[in-house]
Amino acid sequence: MKRPVAAPARRFSSRFHAGAVAPYLFVAPWVIGFLAFTLGPLLFSLYISFFDWPLVGEPQFIGLQNYTTIITDDADFVRSLKVTLTFAAMFVPANLIVALLLAMLLNQPMFASGFFRAAFYVPSIISGVALVTIWSWLLSHEYGVINYMLSLLGIGQINWLGSPNWAPVSIVLVSLWSVGATMLIFLAGLKSISKELYEAASLSGVGKIGQFFLITLPLLSPVLLFNLVTTVIAAFQQLTLALLLTKGGPVKSTYMLAMYIYDNAFKYQDMGYAAAMSWLMLLLIIALTVAIFKFSSMWVFYETEVKGEKP
């Protein structure tokens, strides 16, 4: 029998046809960047987490010792984890509520809504360093404008950044400044809810508050889930504000996990230990995300699905 030689040859040539290669070339910068600057370092950090890896001097393989030390014998890890959880417990709800309220405001037909949309988003693109500088002046104990305004209301001075009780609150307050991205996603979700539903509800005599809980919230729940997950992750990774606004203080009250990892890496130059801690943080975030997804079926509604008992 004669073997069909031509066909494979043609297939071969067509596979490397310029038109077929072009798409890969176009995605190459991202793929190469991802491999070199994200996946590569990621895997490398897993590798060095099994070493005593000082920045200066020779690395030494120590197996799981970094992990066991962190879990069983590092009071600062436990403490910074607590600070992070406390921050997340305040930041996540505050961030979601403020973002949703702003999105609902912007969703109203009103004068210059485009301007306000941009105005509320602008703080999100300001560099964290500039943000911190502005807020450190605003929150200053003796000379800050916030304390001045409070004094006009007859409220005594609050030591926003200098008191261990208030500093975590200040960090939450400042992080709300960059609520813009969450707000925009909420806004997109709101826009996709059909107006007819509200009209029908109005005709049936359902008030505004009822409409919010019966229409807006259920239909927004997939967006809410997305924002919840990303906000939880952002809360765990918070570093800039703690590092620059309060330097983790006073008395370590804002010393978050990400900052402890940073210090281990660059202050104590213990790369292996810091890498191990990063991976523990990743596991923690994955666990939380999985838990959120697991419970999400109880309150997230997709338009295609029908849930019997619920309205």
Partner: peptide
């Protein structure tokens, strides 16, 4: 400074001459 310098040593890309105060920490390099 310390962060940048430590990273430079770690990456094998340290400057030839540098300001220094923390001699015990950097002694091996």
């Amino acid at each position: 400074y310390d962060t940048k310098l430590a990273a430079g040593f770690g990456a094998g890309d340290a400057p030839d001459v540098m300001y220094m105060w923390n001699f015990p920490a950097y002694a091996p390099s």
